[in-house]
Design a protein around this nucleic acid. Structure first.
Lengths: 220, 220
DNA sequence: ACTAGTTTCGAACGAACGTTCGAATAGGCC
DNA sequence: GGCCTATTCGAACGTTCGTTCGAAACTAGT
């Protein structure tokens, strides 16, 4: 967690004394962000109180404000870090892959992989998308737009490559719906792992439920 | 709106004097429910205050409590009515249809039809699914389970009919995700109507993005 | 006009909210 | 030890929260 020290502190320059990869401040902030993520996940942003966050992170109510200046900024830090990370990982995984279908399968796998590894953060990202205002909202919206555009690009490639024609917008948003809705139902004790679910969703999205398993049997 | 008079009143029996199809009480409650739905849609259940509801419905804060005993009960009434209605309409539309594929297309159309005709209510139903507790929660959960089971039934029919094999659970929940996510993106000034979107989503879900338009050109 | 019942409301309740402040503590460098 | 800064905290601020209460206003049958 913890994007590099963009919080309350106005104090001196010259941080990071000798070795530590991140300052003590940043490490402590990360811990708070993790606990806050869990609380926001369980009670919702509006339903979670600063006192809930205080209890969960084991720090006094006033002490929290040393690390961030408002509850809204805290949600912003969580959303920005989560979204930035998932986009960055996606770019890494897409490098060197040429086939459009394979690229889309990687997009889906990357999304679900991160989702199921960080369910609380991704629920907060998905479910509290409208909670931020003005400046905070637009900064997260910019990352979201970039992520959306990447997916649009992949689908347009697929359409060009195979001579298909369908509404890219509806397809992309349907795909996001399939993937993001998972926070409402996934149960790690019952459901398969990310790789399995990603393959199943990719098959439905690309080949359809009516061709799903047959195509897999033949093609692989 | 307004399920038949299950609110605060403990008073006398013998309602509905002569003609009116619903009592004055029920009609007034319906109006409040509509306004409350819009407020919950915009600010979220936890983020909406009773004073917001009072302002939106043009009734005093105290006056609202004549019609329901708590904010939570109000959300319950909204969710129960919305969910009951969509299930009931679905049953009507499915009657007499035999083909499994056609049944699933009707399921999708019914869902999106109602969703886009009642966007606020459906957003409150989708987005505030975890807001109710105990008794209220379980009663709505029961309707949701029935709705879910209908969809499972339709997909199992399809699988049997065409000799397919895929995870019904993942397919159903992916479909719900596609459909319910629409509250995050649909813009009536930009996007097509329910029938168009339902056809597009049905094609993706059943035949896949890679076969979408081709199948439509040939098949219809 | 009187009455009985239904509907509405102003005012207030205690509790919980996000945030602030100044003092107290802890940590690392001379 | 002494010193400076970074960190933590108890207590309180003013506001808003969901809900209650008793009185007023309305409605309809006589």
């Amino acid at each position: 967690m913890a994007s590099p020290s963009t919080a309350t502190r106005v104090s001196s320059g010259r941080r990071r004394t000798v070795i530590a990869p991140a300052t003590r401040f940043d490490r402590r902030l990360s811990e708070i962000l993790i606990h806050a993520t869990n609380v926001f996940c369980e009670k919702g942003y509006a339903g979670a109180s600063m006192r809930d966050l205080s209890r969960a992170s084991g720090m006094s109510l006033a002490g929290l404000y040393y690390y961030f200046e408002s509850k809204e900024r805290l949600l912003f830090l969580i959303q920005k870090h989560t979204f930035t990370t998932i986009v960055q990982r996606l770019k890494g995984r897409l490098e060197g892959v040429g086939d459009p279908e394979e690229q889309i399968r990687i997009f889906i796998l990357n999304h679900l992989d991160y989702f199921l590894a960080n369910p609380a953060a991704m629920k907060v990202l998905s479910h509290e998308a409208e909670a931020l205002k003005n400046g905070f909202a637009s900064e997260v919206a910019a990352i979201k737009r970039e992520y959306y555009r990447i997916c649009v690009g992949l689908l347009d490639d697929l359409k060009r490559d195979r001579g298909l024609q369908f509404s890219t917008r509806i397809a992309v948003l349907s795909l996001f719906g399939m993937m993001n809705w998972i926070y409402t139902w996934h149960n790690p004790r019952v459901d398969a792992d990310a790789e399995h679910i990603a393959r199943e969703m990719s098959d439905i999205f690309l080949r359809g439920a009516m061709n799903g398993s047959k195509a897999r049997k033949v093609g692989r």
